Amino acid sequence: MNWLLPYPLLSAALLGLWLLLNQTVSAGHVVLGSVLAVLASWAMAALRPEKAKIRHPGAILHLAGLVLIDILRSNIAVGWIILRSRKPGGHAGFLAIPLELRNRHGLAILSIIITSTPGTIWVSYDPAKGILLLHVLDLVDEAAWTRLIKDRYERRLMEIFE
């Protein structure tokens, strides 16, 4: 059954959306929507070569809480930077961080965390060297940023995915 519907929730949601957009539940639309939903599910399966293996699901909630707190703190910090037109000594800059994390799902989550946090952005990642290039709006202490990324996020993502 898994070969027929690799993503059953996606297929059901697409079928439901198809029927809502067409404002009908006629047999023809149900059949056509079902075919399109199954094809989309197969296309999604082809795009995703491996499924994520989550080792410690409880750590996800802890990480999500930390990310929410960090996003709130960053919003406040960026707001202060904008309001006071930057204090002397504060400057934007690039930072290279060596990562031990190699799991593609963990790296994707890390990129989402970093980019969704105001004041930071994921610039690039070199998979051969494991180096993350990060841009920080107020780069004062490079060592503190490296510790933050490695201890707060990378360690927990490795616990979840590796």
Rank of each mutant, 00 (worst) to 15 (best):
A52W: 02
H29V: 01
S11V: 06
G33K: 00
K87I: 08
G90D: 15
G28E: 13
V38R: 03
A52Q: 08
H62I: 05
A77W: 01
L15W: 08
V31Y: 05
R48G: 00
L99H: 02
E100W: 03
G89F: 05
L61I: 07
V67E: 00
A96P: 00
A40I: 04
S74T: 01
L101C: 10
L101D: 04
I69T: 07
V78M: 09
W80N: 03
A27K: 03
V30D: 05
A43R: 15
P49T: 05
R55E: 13
G16F: 10
L32M: 13
P8H: 06
A64K: 11
H105R: 09
L10S: 00
G33I: 09
A46Y: 14
L14Y: 06
A92G: 15
P49G: 06
I69D: 08
V38S: 02
W80R: 14
L21F: 15
L99W: 04
G33L: 06
G58K: 07
W18L: 05
L99T: 09
L72N: 02
L47S: 11
E100H: 12
P49V: 04
R86E: 01
A43Y: 14
L21N: 02
V25N: 10
S85M: 11
A27H: 09
P49Y: 08
R48Y: 11
A12G: 07
A43S: 13
H29R: 06
R73W: 09
V25A: 15
L101F: 12
V30Q: 09
L17E: 03
G93M: 06
G89Y: 04
A64P: 03
L99Y: 08
P88V: 11
R102V: 07
H29L: 14
L19M: 14
A64T: 08
L66K: 01
D70Q: 10
P49E: 05
S74D: 09
A52R: 04
S74R: 03
L21Y: 06
R86P: 00
L63Y: 08
G93S: 06
L19T: 07
R48S: 13
R86N: 06
A92S: 15
K87Q: 12
L17D: 03
